[in-house]
Design a protein around this nucleic acid. Structure first.
Length: 408
RNA sequence: GGAGAGAUGCCCGAGUGGCUAAAGGGAGCGGACUGUAAAUCCGUUGGCUACGCCUACGAUGGUUCGAAACCAUCUCUCUCCA
């Protein structure tokens, strides 16, 4: 199967400017394409991962990727798909985030011997002269057309600052710049980037009379239509410090039945023939697919070793029910602190399992706390030294959260 | 610059003098069911040295026995006009 067909089969392609041309360029390994990443946080997330995977797939097919770090565009802030304005970021933050991005990216993309290049649009955007830019680029944009762009639609009601309005122009300029410098003939990005990418191709066409192309990646939505890769507490990060490999694994292990196969197709590199056999699975059989998804992704992001550990930890918790594992979070108290015994409420707040004593009390009252497999049924319960026979006491909150307490 | 509207708990949103730690919904948390899923059902959701106390309805000050609510000033947001 040719690479382009594979991308289609995996459901990765959302919109293209010229399918025939793009398919041909990509299949023959002649594409020089870029994807921009604005350093808006100190770690990449799942959305970035999809873009990087796409890069990897195309790179393996012989195409040349350009990673664009958007330190310059981050100074402005992309209004696409947002209902409110982004908070302005300081130059220092952007700098720091850019470094974090760079570090994480080398894990996915091979930058050796000209196989891929990384550039930073701050290098040219920051030097721009306002009047010159207006005359060179601004002349090719009509405000009427810009205002009809999809990405501004939901901002027309709440207000769109002039600062953000210019984001599109900056991104288009990037494309032009990369075309001139590196012969970049294609831009890929998230589907919310479509308008910004289109205007880039138009700018190049108007300015230089050359045809370049744009293609967007399908947004990963779950069956309820919500963006995946988000939890209540925020994004699922690729940085192990921000989202531990275990949490990362668990996130994918717990996707809804209706989303597993889609995720496998879109996010992993498992051959489509193999995926086809999984499509037969139904009901609880899908748990196997979820395990595969979780394992594969954790492996891609954190490495095989971490993936093994995460899987082992999950099995220990849910299959064997022991809950004990070397990766279980733990807290240690000193002999003095512990004294003759410690109340369960103090332990819960100390370990962070409960944010306050009131919450701890509630948890106990509702039967959500277990110590060493025994349910705590009184909020006055006190843990004594006998509970530490194995060297630690294993506290469980709810069904899935475990914590070890040691004295020492 | 002119006219008007608004700011309530994690979010949305009711409340216009005491019955309000503040309706309802969403989200979260715990429980039941289960497949570490979804759906559903039940409970719960400011804190504490806890039948009481403290802190809270943008900020500050005031009126009152008593304020989220009334008044004044301030800050911010939005809408319309220029």
């Amino acid at each position: 199967m040719k690479i382009y067909d594979e991308l289609v089969a995996r459901g990765l392609i959302a919109q293209v400017t010229d399918e025939k041309e793009i398919a041909e360029l990509v299949n023959s390994g002649k594409a020089v394409f870029y994807i921009g990443f604005d350093p808006t946080a100190d770690s990449l997330h799942v959305g970035h991962f999809m873009a990087l995977s796409l890069m990897k797939r195309l790179q393996e097919a012989g195409n040349k990727p350009i990673v664009l770090i958007g330190a310059g565009t981050a100074m402005i802030g992309d209004p696409s798909g947002r209902t409110d304005m982004r908070q302005m970021m300081s130059v220092e933050t952007i700098q720091h985030n850019s470094e974090c991005f760079k570090k994480q990216m080398s894990r996915f993309i091979d930058f050796s011997e000209g196989k891929a290049i990384m550039v930073n649009n701050a290098d040219w955007l920051m030097k721009l002269n306002y009047v010159e830019l207006l005359r060179e680029v601004g002349i090719h944009f009509t405000v009427n057309r810009m205002l009809t762009a999809e990405c501004y639609k939901n901002r027309m009601e709440r207000g769109l600052s002039f600062l953000e309005f210019n984001y599109m122009i900056m991104q288009s300029y990037d494309f032009l710049e990369l075309y001139r410098k590196y012969g970049c003939n294609m831009q890929f990005g998230g589907d919310d980037q479509w308008s910004n990418m289109l205007t880039g191709t138009e700018l190049i066409h108007k300015k230089l009379g050359e045809n370049v192309y744009a293609m967007t990646i399908t947004l990963l939505l779950n069956s309820e239509g919500k963006k995946m890769g988000k939890t209540q507490s925020g994004a699922v990060w690729l940085d192990a410090e921000k989202t531990s490999p275990f949490e990362f694994y668990q996130y994918w292990r717990n996707v809804a039945d209706s989303d597993v196969l889609k995720c496998i197709r879109m996010l992993t590199f498992i051959p489509l023939e193999e995926v086809a056999t999984m499509e037969e699975w139904e009901g609880s059989e899908l748990n196997r697919a979820k395990e595969i998804l979780a394992f594969e992704l954790t492996k891609l992001v954190h490495g095989e070793n971490e993936a093994q550990k995460a899987q082992a930890a999950a099995k220990a918790l849910f299959v064997e029910g022991s809950g004990e594992d070397e990766n279980t979070p733990s807290t240690s108290v000193t002999m003095q602190e512990f004294g003759e015994g410690m109340s369960i409420l103090d332990i819960l707040t100390l370990t962070g399992l409960a944010a306050s004593k009131s919450e701890a009390r509630r948890l106990v009252e509702q039967g959500g706390i277990t110590v060493n497999g025994e349910k705590i049924d009184s909020k006055d319960a006190v843990l004594e030294k006998a509970a530490f026979e194995n060297g630690y006491a294993l506290i469980r909150k709810g069904k899935k959260v475990y914590h070890k307490l040691t004295i020492g």
